[in-house]
Measured scan of single mutants.
Amino acid sequence: MDSLVVLVLCLSCLLLLSLWRQSSGRGKLPPGPTPLPVIGNILQIGIKDISKSLTNLSKVYGPVFTLYFGLKPIVVLHGYEAVKEALIDLGEEFSGRGIFPLAERANRGFGIVFSNGKKWKEIRRFSLMTLRNFGMGKRSIEDRVQEEARCLVEELRKTKASPCDPTFILGCAPCNVICSIIFHKRFDYKDQQFLNLMEKLNENIKILSSPWIQICNNFSPIIDYFPGTHNKLLKNVAFMKSYILEKVKEHQESMDMNNPQDFIDCFLMKMEKEKHNQPSEFTIESLENTAVDLFGAGTETTSTTLRYALLLLLKHPEVTAKVQEEIERVIGRNRSPCMQDRSHMPYTDAVVHEVQRYIDLLPTSLPHAVTCDIKFRNYLIPKGTTILISLTSVLHDNKEFPNPEMFDPHHFLDEGGNFKKSKYFMPFSAGKRICVGEALAGMELFLFLTSILQNFNLKSLVDPKNLDTTPVVNGFASVPPFYQLCFIPV
């Protein structure tokens, strides 16, 4: 009986604490739906499609509103004006990374994606500088992407125009580009180590996009005490870190300090320079996690976009025909596509942009946080508050993009057929937390897609009208449904 009384008292205290925290903070924060004790607004949000729920709530509470995930307040920004004001106009104040408990377990605050403060700034600055020195957006990395595009075309030829699921092959190409940047090595598509790495990356994007992960991140005790797919994700990350550590040891034994070959060499050189400046942010643990982040951000996002792009091109054969006509006119058949071609191919450029806009790969991006107490639109948001960005509300804005739910390359073309930029184009987020590999991803999408369409016609196994382009999961990332196609050599 005594234990029951204690339990009831504990629960009562928890409920009172929950109510007090919510009521004391709500006077400062933007308005929002009334949260339930302990669980907050979790029942009012469709976990399978958070973005749709945010759109519905914005119609009631406006472009800036507050939700509670458990006891934790989260300020939501919906629509271009609110997102721009926060991420661009007040970029420094909104540059923090929001709480992501599962990532905390995986990387302990290291790396480039989930770190904060001085650690994040130094690692991000170093990573950007190193990638630029190796030619991100310049010639040397373009050579690597072109080489991988040629290998991709050869792998597709091996399908002999038979029906195939493109998931694996389209994942190999961007993964190999990242391998060449980090390890100075590309792998054969049949290499077992490479296959294991690909498998872990593919599993992780599916797990991260599941409703279960949303629950884990908002009720963090689940991570330590409950079984579930989150444990598989943590094991996959541990596998990748151990693999990278092996490569780091190989580099330490063979590195030429006067001739760095890749990202690992550059990081080890930085560690050597910083060894007298303790404590340094440049450690082996930081290198492991930064490399894992580059793999995660640079492989599955690009391969998922490529997979979605081919599905949309199957669905819209008239678009595919126009792209192939432009390829034939500008590039021809006797040389590989290059980035200089893009400025002469406005329709193809528009298609690449429209694919990214339409699929809305990361509907709410990753959570941000404010780095200080900030007054925002007459609300006071306390330091450390998590900020949720609705990228969907920007990419699918119906004023900027008429009929935003329709796939239409003319969203990025003017009346004369010239490519038209849009400030609403934010597939990689915006501001200080914009994806480090934005330029690389854009290069890969253009070169891989043009190389495929230069060499193959795409054949659907069903009537294009019957192809479903609805994402199968739409949590962290929008993942396309399973499909097969035939690559018919031109």
Rank of each mutant, 00 (worst) to 15 (best):
S254H: 12
V436C: 07
L19P: 13
H410N: 15
V177I: 08
T159E: 03
E272F: 08
E246R: 11
R342V: 11
F456V: 00
V323I: 14
E415P: 09
N204A: 07
C266W: 15
N259F: 07
D191S: 04
C164R: 02
A103P: 15
N259G: 10
D463A: 08
V75I: 15
R186S: 02
N133C: 09
Y379G: 04
T305D: 02
L445D: 03
K423P: 10
E272S: 13
F219C: 09
N218S: 15
I207A: 07
L294P: 00
C179Y: 03
D165M: 00
F476E: 04
E328M: 15
V76A: 04
F446W: 15
I264M: 09
R377F: 04
T55G: 12
K241Y: 04
Y424C: 11
F263R: 01
L388N: 03
E203L: 03
F168P: 05
G32R: 01
D373P: 08
Y61L: 02
F419I: 08
Q252E: 11
E438S: 15
E92V: 11
A430N: 13
Q324C: 05
I222L: 14
K270A: 12
I123T: 15
C266S: 10
R21L: 12
K158V: 04
F134S: 12
V323T: 09
R342F: 05
L485S: 01
I327P: 00
V490M: 11
T302M: 08
E147L: 08
I488L: 11
K420H: 09
E142L: 02
K465L: 08
L195C: 09
R186F: 03
N259K: 10
Y308H: 05
A350F: 01
S220T: 13
R335C: 06
T290I: 13
L15G: 13
C151P: 00
A149H: 00
E326I: 01
Q261R: 15
T299V: 09
A173M: 01
F65V: 03
V462M: 08
I169L: 15
N236G: 03
T301G: 07
E85I: 06
T320P: 07
S460T: 08
A430R: 11
H411M: 02
E199L: 08
L447R: 00
V352L: 15
G298Q: 00
F239P: 03
G298R: 00
K72R: 12
S51F: 10
P30K: 00
E203N: 05
Y379H: 10
R342Q: 10
A441S: 08
A350H: 00
K52T: 13
N334T: 14
P31R: 07
V330S: 09
T301P: 08
K160M: 09
L445Y: 04
C435G: 00
I215L: 14
D89R: 05
N218R: 15
P337N: 01
N133G: 14
F100E: 14
F407M: 01
E250K: 07
L29A: 04
S51E: 09
A161R: 06
F482K: 15
R97S: 06
L306G: 01
L71N: 15
N466G: 09
F419C: 06
D349V: 14
P37T: 03
F263K: 01
R335W: 02
E272V: 08
Q192D: 10
N334D: 14
L485C: 13
V490A: 12
T304Y: 05
F263V: 06
F476Q: 15
Q214T: 11
I488A: 08
Y189E: 00
R124M: 05
S280Q: 12
R105A: 11
V490C: 11
D143G: 08
K420S: 07
T305V: 06
K432T: 06
L67F: 12
I207M: 11
N334P: 05
G298M: 00
K399Y: 10
L361M: 09
G137K: 09
F448S: 00
T386S: 10
P464Q: 04
P464I: 07
L234G: 07
D463Y: 03
I45D: 05
E142D: 02
P221I: 07
D262S: 14
L11S: 11
C10G: 13
I182S: 01
Q192Y: 06
S393R: 04
F446D: 00
V472S: 08
R125A: 07
D349F: 12
F110N: 12
L380V: 13
L440N: 00
A103R: 10
P163A: 09
K421M: 12
Y308S: 04
L413I: 08
F126I: 11
K119P: 12
I99W: 15
K235G: 08
P402M: 11
H410V: 09
F168N: 06
Q340M: 13
P31V: 06
K158M: 08
E122P: 14
Y308N: 01
I99L: 13
L485K: 00
N41Y: 02
N258M: 09
N403R: 10
N334C: 13
K375D: 05
T385M: 05
N466C: 12
F446I: 01
C179R: 00
N277V: 11
N378E: 12
P346V: 06
V490S: 11
G298H: 01
E438G: 15
L16G: 13
H411A: 02
A238K: 14
G46S: 13
M257T: 15
W120L: 06
M198I: 06
F183R: 01
I327A: 04
A238N: 13
A149E: 00
L14G: 15
K459Y: 08
C266N: 12
Q22C: 13
Q454L: 04
L461M: 14
N466P: 01
H230G: 12
N466L: 15
D256E: 09
R186Y: 00
L195F: 04
Y225V: 10
L268F: 05
K119L: 05
N204T: 14
S286Q: 15
T55S: 12
V83F: 07
Y483A: 01
Q146H: 04
N56G: 12
P480H: 02
I374G: 03
S478C: 14
L313D: 00
E199I: 08
L314D: 01
G475D: 06
S24R: 14
P489Q: 02
V370T: 14
K158S: 09
N217S: 15
R377S: 07
Y483E: 01
R132F: 06
N466S: 13
F263S: 03
Y61M: 02
R144K: 12
C175F: 14
S336G: 12
N403G: 08
P363M: 04
D265L: 03
V177A: 01
F425M: 09
V177P: 00
F168H: 13
S162L: 14
N455Q: 10
S460M: 03
T392R: 13
S209Y: 07
E325P: 03
T304N: 10
T450K: 01
N196C: 11
I47E: 11
K158A: 10
A369T: 15
S23G: 13
L131T: 07
L36R: 07
R21D: 10
G384H: 06
E354W: 00
M443V: 12
P402S: 14
V462Y: 04
A430I: 12
L312H: 06
S18T: 14
I182T: 01
S429P: 00
V479R: 15
V352T: 11
F219Y: 10
F412I: 00
M129C: 12
N277Y: 08
F295K: 02
S51A: 12
F425A: 11
S336K: 06
L43T: 12
I452V: 03
T386H: 08
L54Q: 03
F94H: 03
L201P: 02
P63K: 05
I182Y: 04
E122Q: 13
E288R: 06
D262H: 03
N217W: 14
K121N: 11
L9I: 13
I182K: 00
E104I: 10
Y379D: 02
T299I: 05
P402K: 13
L11H: 08
Q252N: 07
P346C: 06
H344G: 12
P337V: 09
P427F: 03
P30L: 02
G79M: 02
L440V: 05
L131F: 11
F100M: 13
S95P: 05
F456R: 00
C266R: 10
G431T: 03
F226C: 10
F487A: 01
L458P: 03
A103V: 10
S254G: 10
F263T: 04
G32M: 00
P346I: 04
I488M: 12
A161K: 07
T450D: 01
P363H: 05
T364S: 11
T385D: 02
F134M: 14
S336L: 12
T469P: 09
P227L: 10
P489K: 01
R307G: 01
A369V: 14
F446H: 03
L447G: 02
E155F: 14
K158E: 09
V6I: 13
T304E: 05
M406I: 13
S162G: 11
K119T: 11
R26G: 12
F295Y: 04
G298D: 00
S478A: 10
F94A: 07
L268V: 05
N418H: 12
F69V: 15
N277C: 11
S429Q: 03
P166V: 02
R335L: 04
Q214R: 12
K420T: 06
L19Q: 15
Q261G: 11
K118M: 12
W20R: 12
Y379A: 05
F428V: 05
Q484A: 05
C435T: 00
E326S: 01
N334S: 14
F425G: 07
